[in-house]
């Protein structure tokens, strides 16, 4: 076949361009550390990377939810810890008070301490979180869940029985707290009854009433322990989820890396290969362009 001068020029130039393109492509991959730079480099990997990215984002969301739930539960647990201490103390006081050797004055001082414990419990029941939101009021977290109407000694629950849940894992929505009515039950009434019994005029205490109060304090104590145990269990569950989620995250990140990241060993081999190719094309270009019959016409 006749080869025209233009063809010789164009073909050398084309192969030069092609080699240069391939060389630059590998260079770009090495510079970015990514095998898939544009979706067209590997459409399937690029679109799967988007999905894996979403999975990673979900895992991160759940991790952040767990931090928030853990805060809330730890705070709740620590409050309940104090509450159970107060109840133990109340029980001790009631046992002391039921002794016949106690003078009316001593009973008054026991009553006074019980009153103090009751006030303390009220404060604990109205604990707020870092944002000033009440922990134990259910959805009604902007006002104290336990209120004492003016001039009265009665304490009533103003919250609701809803518990906020948060999504701590793909298929787990966890209650972040428990509601005040469930935790505290009728403890305020119980203590009030006991206080009133101790403050009553007369030499003898109403033993029957005190026994009833002790029974109720015991029941409350059990209840608080149960709720505390449930919060503790949830905290343990969060730890377990953390471990599993950590593994899952690692595996997602590995998948993502396998999808789009560069295998450097392979890329560098390719890089050297392309470099040789480009050099050869350049050499060929110079040689071909340097050949002319005119050079021999003297």
């Amino acid at each position: 076949m006749r080869i025209s001068t233009v063809t010789m020029f164009e073909q050398s130039l084309n192969s030069l361009n092609r080699q240069q393109g391939e060389f630059l492509k590998v260079g770009q991959q090495i510079a970015s550390g990514r095998r898939v730079v544009n979706p067209s480099d590997d459409p399937l990997a690029a679109s799967r990377a988007v999905s894996v990215g979403q999975s990673i984002s979900s895992v991160e969301q759940f991790a952040s939810a767990r931090v928030s739930v853990r805060n809330s539960l730890s705070q709740g647990e620590s409050v309940l810890n104090s509450v159970s201490d107060s109840l133990v103390r109340a029980k001790t006081l009631l046992v002391q008070a039921s002794s016949d050797t106690l003078s009316p004055v001593d009973r008054q001082s026991v009553a006074a301490e019980l009153r103090g414990l009751r006030e303390g419990l009220l404060g604990q029941a109205n604990t707020t979180d870092g944002n000033g939101r009440y922990l134990f009021g259910g959805f009604k977290d902007s006002a104290p869940p336990f209120e004492r109407p003016n001039g009265s000694d009665t304490i009533t629950y103003q919250g609701d029985s809803n518990v906020r849940v948060q999504r701590v894992d793909g298929f787990r929505e966890m209650p972040v707290s428990d509601t005040g009515d469930k935790i505290f039950g009728d403890i305020f009434d119980t203590l009030q009854t006991a206080i009133e019994a101790l403050e009553a005029e007369g030499q003898q205490v109403d033993h029957e009433s005190l026994r009833e109060s002790m029974r109720k304090v015991d029941a409350s104590f059990d209840n608080v322990l149960t709720v505390r145990a449930s919060m503790g269990a949830r905290l343990n569950e969060l730890d377990a989820i953390d471990t599993v989620a950590g593994n899952r995250m690692l595996s997602y990140q590995q998948t993502l890396s396998q999808l789009v990241d560069l295998d450097y060993a392979e890329a560098i081999t390719e890089y050297s290969l392309r470099q040789v190719g480009l050099q050869a094309a350049q050499r060929a270009y110079v040689d071909v362009q340097g050949l002319s019959l005119f050079d021999y016409l003297r």
Binding site: M1, R2, I3, V6, T7, Q11, S292, L293
Partner: peptide
């Protein structure tokens, strides 16, 4: 590109050929 080479082989100028002709 292939067709262009074919077209050029018919219609394009080859300087070597022209040198020989000269």
């Amino acid at each position: 590109d292939q067709l262009r080479a074919v077209q050029q082989s018919e219609s394009g100028v080859s300087l070597d050929e022209e040198a020989a002709n000269l």
